[in-house]
Nucleic acid binder design. Structure first.
Lengths: 256, 256
DNA sequence: TTCTCAATTTCGTGG
DNA sequence: CCACGAAGTTGAGAA
């Protein structure tokens, strides 16, 4: 990792570092007192305050306040930049075309500016909860219902992509939809759209919503739409997969 | 803004700064070569690479790679921390209960550690595209249909919050729902839930989905549910509001 | 490019 | 604390 950092830089030092850092596609970090104006898909305004600004090597812009995971303002990769000094203020503009959007950052004071070149080639591996549930269900359909048989691991309908298409012990088609969290009315509606489409061809089609829990409203709506609910949580699925020797998480995790 | 920064710190300096920074609810910034393991709602693994780590004063954790707006790993506000040195490696663990989640960061090298106290009291003001559309519609309902009259700017139903409740020139009730982007099947379903609820009391109730465009499937579903669609885009709304002297964006914006 | 859906979504608001 | 819906959602994958 190569780079440099300047504490309490002059405006000129700062402007130079910013232009160099962004131009050379480095990571730019700035701490200072700044305001932000945004206009594009929406429109926002944020008066002066002390914040952290980051420009990444792909042109992403992030402005972080002292709290929250989400940046208060941002600009996606590929944004174009313009930096200048005007009336004693350092201005950084990030521009994006399609959709047309602009973020303008005005610094009243800069406490820190840093430019670094990061090397990061590692591959990010993620297992989502729904993947885990589905994987376990495919191995052991009886987790949801005895006699169930998986026909298709996914099925594309006009209404969307069905999680699992099965038949039950009486040969009735069954659409299975997984939710890792408590199932909401939205989830029931989604399953309903799939089942509706298939019931036009065969009114016998069943729909099962599989989730660790379900809201009262969602259960009511499911009943009125003749859909079913089965309880299943991610933790049980992990146990099942581990018991049959399937890896579901990075090994050697939290040994300490 | 008060704080300090250490370049190429020793492990001990680093550990001390980390504990102090997080303990005192400051902003902690670290640049170094690190790996990340996560387990909770999902599960992820990321081998060593050069990245930026941030812990905010509310306990949020962010780990950023050199590209993308989104952090590769994170932990929400209120997380609890544990830091220690083990076999020459600096480890930082962020823990969250409910849902139970852990992020473990292992540093092989630290190039920079900084601790700062930021003061940021400003209020963030955001105008969303839907707000702009609704505002324009309330001023000029004929943007959607001649003779329409707004009765309630919002109306709470069991099914949710209706954008606008109106009556048409024949005194039929009309539910209006705005979407800033191309309207999807989801949007139609949402409007359908509102209208269904009201049609139980009065089968004459109309539902109009207002959006810049609509998908083929959504339009079909709207027709089959006896709902209507009217084209309206945000840009026209902004023009309308500006023409009647309503502010829709921060003033003095991008004067240069 | 456009569309469709998932996300460790996050975030706010109302009950 | 739970439920629900919006977001400048972002991001990936398929048509």
């Amino acid at each position: 990792m190569t780079g440099f950092i300047i504490q309490n830089p002059t405006l000129e030092q700062c402007l130079k570092a910013v232009k160099m850092g962004i131009g050379a596609r480095r990571l730019l970090i700035m701490l200072g007192e700044l305001r932000v104006d945004y206009f594009g898909r929406g429109s926002s305004e944020l008066d002066y305050g002390e914040r952290l600004l980051i420009v990444k090597s792909d042109g992403s812009l992030l402005i972080h306040r002292p709290t929250n995971v989400e940046p208060v303002n941002w600009q996606p990769p590929g944004s174009l930049y313009r930096a200048y000094v005007k009336r004693g203020l350092l201005v950084l503009e990030a521009y994006r075309k399609r959709p047309e959007e602009r973020v303008k950052v005005t610094f009243r004071r800069v406490s820190l500016v840093g430019v670094y070149h990061l090397k990061d080639e590692a591959e990010f591996k993620l297992y989502t909860a729904e993947e885990i549930m589905k994987k376990a269900f495919i191995k052991r359909p009886d987790l949801v219902e005895k006699g169930l048989r998986v026909v298709l691991e996914e099925k594309r309908l006009r209404a969307g992509l069905v999680d699992c298409f099965c038949v039950d012990s009486s040969n009735r088609p069954v659409v299975v939809e997984f939710k890792k969290d408590r199932a909401s009315v939205e989830a029931v509606e989604q399953l309903s759209r799939y089942v509706d489409e298939l019931r036009r061809g065969n009114p016998e089609v069943r729909g099962i919503l599989v989730a660790p829990s379900i809201t009262r409203e969602a259960l009511e709506r499911a009943r009125s739409l003749n859909l079913e609910y089965r309880r299943l949580d991610v933790r049980s699925c992990i146990r099942v997969l581990e018991s049959i020797g399937e890896s579901v998480k990075p090994l050697e995790y939290f040994e300490g």
